[in-house]
């Protein structure tokens, strides 16, 4: 706002497309809300199947982000800071799941972790079975959301200059201390953005989850799966469920924004 007044009015050739974009995003959401039969809302909100699905969605998406943070942050760091042969190939490989249709991602996960999969078969011999479990839901989420996180964080790491790493080293900080005390805090806005992006992607995940984890209430039925199931039998219920999911995710993001972005924006 302050820059707006100092630099003059925003030009129309930027404002018009910006408004178009905003309207395009908001109109379907507003329409969804407008069509939501609120009569059914109290009943749905007390339906244990819906609550299970909502809870499952929230915790699996969060768990997926925790895993993404643990493996994705170092991966992004390696891509951004370490020169090694084939780095561009690795970078492309990381982004492949972004273009993969989610159902195909689910089949890929089954090929790896399924009963006869490369990892799934030996695991099964040990008595561990991943498909049809909440673990499978988390893995599906990680698979589709990790690329978002890594791309976002790598961008943030590249934007923060390597010189700061050099300063920290000259001050005697080891690589670990430099990573946790300098690199990560400086890239924090990007890391948080990556987490939010990945979390939102997880929350909406459908294809990979239903293919890899199946659909069972309380165990693998996330909100999108519940919505889809309702859609084929009871579209009004589907709308109500979508509305609940929308509100829940907006609430969480708004809370995060207060807590995190407020801090980081300074």
């Amino acid at each position: 706002m302050t820059t707006g007044t100092r630099l003059g009015r925003a030009p129309a050739h930027l404002l018009v497309p910006a408004l178009l974009g905003l309207v395009f995003l908001l109109v379907p959401l507003a329409a969804l809300v407008a069509r939501t039969p609120f009569r059914g809302l109290p009943q749905r909100l007390t339906d244990p199947v819906v609550l299970d699905a909502l809870w499952l969605s929230l915790w699996t998406a969060t768990a997926a982000m925790a895993i993404s943070l643990v493996v994705g942050l170092p991966l992004a760091w390696v891509l951004a800071r370490v020169d090694f042969p084939g780095r561009s190939v690795v970078r492309v490989a990381v982004t492949v799941p972004l273009v993969l249709p989610p159902v195909v991602a689910g089949v890929a996960l089954l090929s790896a972790f399924g009963r006869s999969g490369v990892i799934g078969a030996p695991l099964r011999d040990l008595g561990i079975s991943i498909p049809y479990t909440s673990t499978a839901v988390v893995l599906a989420h990680v698979f589709v959301a990790l690329p978002f996180f890594v791309v976002s964080v790598e961008g943030a790491l590249r934007a923060t200059s390597r010189e700061y790493d050099e300063v920290a080293a000259a001050l005697g900080a080891g690589r670990g201390r430099t990573f946790f005390r300098v690199t990560v805090p400086m890239a924090l806005p990007g890391i948080v953005a990556g987490l939010v992006l990945g979390w939102a992607r997880s929350l909406g995940e459908f294809g990979a989850t239903i293919t890899f984890a199946g659909n069972f209430p309380g165990i693998t039925q996330t909100m999108p799966l519940a919505v889809y199931e309702a859609l084929s039998t009871d579209p009004e219920a589907a709308l109500t469920l979508s509305f609940i999911m929308l509100v829940a995710s907006v609430l969480v993001l708004a809370l995060l924004r207060e807590r995190w972005f407020g801090e980081i924006a300074r």
């Binding site: 089949v107 089954l110 399924g114 009963r115 006869s116 498909p131 049809y132 239903i210 293919t211 984890a213 199946g214 659909n215 069972f216 209430p217 693998t220 039925q221 799966l225 889809y228 199931e229 084929s232």
Partner: peptide
């Protein structure tokens, strides 16, 4: 193990040996 949302999904699970 799973309550698939349509019959094709059930068939897919059987086809894939899952």
């Amino acid at each position: 193990r799973s309550l698939e949302v349509d019959v094709k999904a059930v068939l897919t699970k059987v086809l894939l040996g899952e």
